[in-house]
């Protein structure tokens, strides 16, 4: 692996390149979710009957998943703190725990969806459920992607290399968490 260009090491904007980039990634993600959830909200506000459909979601499962993601976010930020102190192995351990949180989230989601689909609430049942599966599905893809990247970051962090990456993947993970924080009331709570 060749050394990175000098361009990457400069920081004329006052912050490290990778952190700057991850914030731009987040900005571009906000509009992806913003467009989708905006479309959902306008349907939701206009269709009284959607309250009826939404009543069939399970806020306890959704709440548990929120708890899982919040906790994994805590692990991510603790990993970042460890990386700040130069403690690579602890940072890696925290990232593995974060990944575990992501995995648990996906498992719970899989259980939840299986139950719902077996009760006839499929993606084609009506537009509410279409939005439900699409929004949560895109979010779940972000969780999976974050987990995979995090495993790579943890591998290098364990050897005390590239520790700044711990913070970067952490910021991304917190963003995925924030998206869920809004998905949760939108899909589960508002009835």
């Amino acid at each position: 692996m060749s050394a990175r260009p000098i361009a990457t090491t400069r920081s004329a904007a006052g912050m490290p390149t990778a952190r700057l980039a991850v914030w731009w990634i987040i900005a571009s993600e906000i509009v992806i979710f913003g467009g989708l959830l905006g479309s959902y909200i306008m349907h939701r506000l206009a269709h009284g009957v959607w309250a009826d459909y939404a009543a069939a979601t399970n806020p306890w499962i959704g709440g548990f998943n929120t708890f899982v993601l919040l906790t994994s976010s805590l692990m991510a930020v603790l990993g970042h703190q460890a990386a700040e102190r130069g403690d690579g192995p602890r940072a890696a351990k925290m990232l593995y725990l974060t990944c575990g949180g992501g995995l648990l989230f996906i498992c719970v989601k899989a259980y939840e969806w299986t139950t719902e689909i077996s009760h006839g609430m499929t993606i084609t049942a009506n537009t509410f459920w279409s939005f439900y599966y699409t929004a949560a599905g895109i979010h779940a893809l972000h969780v999976i992607a974050g987990c995979i990247i995090m495993l790579f970051v943890a591998q290098t962090a364990k050897k005390n290399l590239e520790l700044h990456r711990v913070e970067i993947i952490g910021i991304y993970w917190h963003f995925v968490d924030v998206v869920w924080i809004f998905l949760f009331p939108l899909l589960y709570i508002a009835k």
Binding site: G120, M121, N126
Partner: peptide, 17 residues
């Protein structure tokens, strides 16, 4: 009628308030 238009589909969970 959680599944709307799909017959008598029961709730996704009993705990739903």
């Amino acid at each position: 009628h959680g599944a709307g238009g799909h017959g008598e589909a029961p709730h996704g969970g009993e705990a739903a308030p």
